[in-house]
């Protein structure tokens, strides 16, 4: 096969054949090596969390990828293709510039607070006067995991990356991860009782364009409630809330323990 081999034949047919073989082999090995090297580099650069977020976004069912302007009824049926990163989105910029009055939206029985910005990973963000932001778990997720859920918060001084893990929760056997809506450093940890879970000092000026507020958020929760009903009905084989009424306060105790892992897995990200 190699030149120098005792019976290596130098003729066009052998040179073409072995040349193509070598080319294909080099391409396969080279591409594989490229993928491995760039994966190592991405890990070294700390991009693992963001890649995880993108991967999981890709796996979301189409209905869960609804654009925020689909939620409000401005662009019905539009699906997000940017992992909910509205900053580089031209459609978002245009619609914000047009600033159409939003159609009225059913809040779906969840608390949507005016001073909060909501992330689709079920975290909320509140801008504080001292320039820091506080992060917490939104109403739906709080009710889903229940009061007894164990919190796993990062320590003061740890760094958070946008769409990287912010904190983790453990409810029974299920472990879930809530991603951060902001990049910055943890300056204080809180608790459910304190009204926030983390206080974060953002890196540079705060950019909240990707986050939902007001009626957008209300519409998002409406969709999430519908999705939850489907998941629950798939679990029990009977439709829950057939009347379309509001959800019960403590969802976690309403879900049978054997289904909790699956339901949480469907609604929240896996730790």
């Amino acid at each position: 096969m190699l030149p120098g081999n005792t019976d290596f034949i130098v003729d066009p047919a052998h040179l073409i054949f072995l040349g193509v073989f070598a080319l294909v082999l080099v391409t396969v090995v080279g591409t594989l090596a490229y993928a491995i090297v760039s994966a190592r580099r991405a890990v070294a650069r700390g991009q693992a969390a963001s890649i995880l977020w993108h991967e999981e976004f890709e796996e979301l069912p189409a209905s869960a990828k609804a654009c925020r302007h689909d939620l409000t009824g401005e662009t019905p049926g539009r699906r997000c293709e940017r992992a909910f990163d509205c900053k580089g989105c031209e459609t978002h910029a245009r619609l914000v510039a047009e600033a159409k009055p939003l159609p009225s939206i059913d809040a779906g029985g969840f608390f949507v607070l005016a001073d909060r910005l909501y992330h689709r990973g079920h975290a909320w963000l509140k801008q504080e006067e001292d320039g820091t932001v506080t992060l917490g778990l939104d109403d739906l997720a709080t009710r889903l995991v229940g009061k007894s859920a164990a919190l796993d918060l990062p320590a003061v001084g740890e760094r958070l990356a946008e769409n990287g893990p912010a904190f983790r929760l453990k409810a029974g056997k299920a472990r879930v991860r809530v991603v951060s809506p902001v990049t910055g450093e943890v300056v204080e940890t809180g608790s459910q009782g304190m009204g926030f879970l983390l206080r974060v000092k953002p890196d540079g000026p705060l950019d909240t364009r990707a986050l939902l507020s007001g009626r957008e958020a209300a519409a998002f929760f409406g969709r999430e409630r519908d999705r939850l009903q489907l998941v629950l009905s798939a679990a029990h084989g009977v439709p829950a809330l057939a009347d379309g009424g509001d959800l019960v306060g403590d969802l976690s105790s309403a879900i049978p323990a054997e289904d909790r892992d699956r339901v949480l897995g469907e609604m929240l990200l896996e730790a």
């Binding site: 591409t31 490229y34 491995i36 760039s38 991405a42 991009q47 693992a48 993108h54």
Partner: peptide, 16 residues
């Protein structure tokens, strides 16, 4: 650690 990153990178070159 890194498994999903490698998967992501492999997926990017899957066309090759």
């Amino acid at each position: 650690p890194g498994a999903l990153v490698l998967e992501h990178q492999l997926h990017k070159v899957m066309v090759v």
